Structures are given as structure tokens and as C-alpha cells.
Simulated scan of single mutants.
Amino acid sequence: MTVQTIAECRLLYELAHTTDSDEAGLRTRLGLDAAHVSRTLDSLVAAGLVERVPAGTRVALTARGRAAAGLLAERARETLRTFLGSPAPQGSAGVALREPRPGDLGWIVQRNAALYAAEYGWNADYEGLVARIVADFAEDHDPHLERVWIAELAGRPAGCVMCVRDDAPGTARLRLLLVEPEARGHGLGDRLVGAVVDFARGVGYRDLVLWTNDVLGAARRIYQRHGFVLTAEKPHRSFGKDLIGQDWRLDLHRSGE
């Protein structure tokens, strides 16, 4: 493999996680200057890992580039597993759910902002939304009806989710489901959503709702496995992107029969 610099690794990662990239977009998302991005892309093109689309400024990974990006991702996962002293992902071994400790609410904001910027190119508007949601919970919540879970893998935070009261009577809302990329494959997403469903049903909510976007395919599949039903879709412009928002609902009485 010919990738040698951190900048080349960052560009390969970005291109592997976006479907439509141009040099201007890469500069914005990575916070690099134009000359640096151009030089790095030239190096990757010369190595046969990236190609420039003719008559335009778009760039994309070649087949060789996709293989290199996959190898880099696997090496990163192996490094993390070695650092954490955990085995390769299988089942839910080493996974624990707990209540937040001091500093965890700030971690939720930081990781949501960083992860969605890296994987989907969302801008700081999303960080502001998450910060408001977390601040509202921290300042005023009913511990009997609202809760936050932190998922740990090998003793380190690796995911989160929140259950809060919705405006509709008898309805709870699932918010801010997140699983770190390196922790995927351990069933953390299922464990987190299952915890919300069990809690909401146990304290007497009738319905559990959530709002998400169609690009978040892995999360949607988890919701479907737990019985959520899509109730509405609407295009919108948020977080610097054109998205399709989705409302999902779970009838807790029926799903618990």
C-alpha cells in the first residue's frame, strides 16, 4: 500500500464515506487549505488510488483506493482492539450500559458533532441541535420518566441514547442514538434501543417515537428490528445538506403483547 501521510489517510477516509465529493467540499470538511488538498490529491492520483472525474472538480476512489481505505479502516480497528485489550467484534461480550457520569453529557455532544461531520459532512448546526437537547435534559428532566444511557466497551464510552418525554401525552421520544465506528459489530445499537423500549414500556408510556434521516440506514434497520413503523417522511435542508426526515413510531402496548 502506498499511503504514507496522515493527510492522505484523512482524504481516503473522507472519500470512502461520501458519495459525491469535490475539492472544495473536502477542504471545508477537513479544514485544510486548497494547496494542501490539491497536493495530497495529486499524490493519491499518481498512486492510482483516486481519480479526477473528467470535465469537473469531482474526485472519487478507484477500486485500488477503496481496497486501501478498507485496509486502513481494518488496521485502525485492530489498533483500537489492541489498545483496549478487547477481542475482535463478536456478540455483545464486554458491553455494558450505565447512567451518565460527570462529563458524559459533554462527550455526547462532542462525539455526535465529530462523527456526523466525518461520516456525513454535517455542519455545526447539528452540534448546536445536540447541545440544546443535552442542555435541556441536564437542566430539567424527570429521572422517573427520562433517562440517558452510556454504552461502554472494555470500560470506555462507545455509544449513547436518550429517552425523554414528548409533547404528546403518554409518548416518549428516543433521541441521539450513537455508536462509535470502532465499536460497531458488538450489538451496542440493539442494546441501546432495547434499553429505551424496555424503560419506556416499564414506566407506562403508550408510544415511543423518534425522528431520523433517510441517510442513517444502519440506525433505521435497528429501529425496524425493534418494531418501529415509519409514519411520515419530509424533505428538508438541515446541517448543510438536503435530507429526507423520517418519523418513526412504536406502539408499546402492542409490541409488548
Rank of each mutant, 00 (worst) to 15 (best):
V45H: 10
L153N: 05
L129Q: 08
W248Q: 05
D20W: 09
D20N: 08
P169G: 12
L15D: 00
R27V: 10
L41E: 01
V164N: 08
A172W: 06
V179H: 12
A68K: 02
E146T: 02
L192Y: 15
A88S: 11
L12C: 07
F199L: 02
R10A: 15
G155F: 11
H17Y: 11
E119H: 13
R81Q: 09
D251M: 08
E127L: 06
V134G: 14
M162V: 01
T40M: 08
A183C: 09
E74C: 14
L192P: 10
L84Q: 07
L243P: 05
D198T: 01
I6E: 03
L41W: 09
P157M: 04
A34R: 02
A200I: 00
E127F: 14
R249F: 15
A47S: 13
A135S: 09
G70R: 01
A200H: 07
R64G: 12
G25Y: 10
V130K: 08
L44T: 04
R27I: 11
E14S: 13
P102H: 09
A7V: 01
W211V: 03
Y126E: 06
H17E: 02
G170A: 09
L216C: 14
P100E: 01
G245P: 04
W122L: 09
T231M: 09
S38V: 03
L72V: 05
N123I: 02
V148Q: 06
E78G: 15
D207H: 11
G106C: 05
I108P: 08
Y126D: 04
A76N: 04
D104H: 10
T171E: 07
D242R: 02
R98P: 10
L72W: 08
R39F: 14
R206I: 03
I150C: 11
Y126H: 13
A16V: 00
T57N: 12
G106Y: 06
L178W: 09
V130N: 11
A96V: 01
V134R: 07
I108F: 15
A88P: 01
G25N: 02
A118C: 07
L61Y: 12
R220A: 14
D125S: 14
A76G: 10
S255V: 03
A113S: 09
G189A: 03
L145N: 05
H186I: 00
Y120V: 02
R39E: 08
I150V: 05
P100L: 06
H36V: 08
D42C: 13
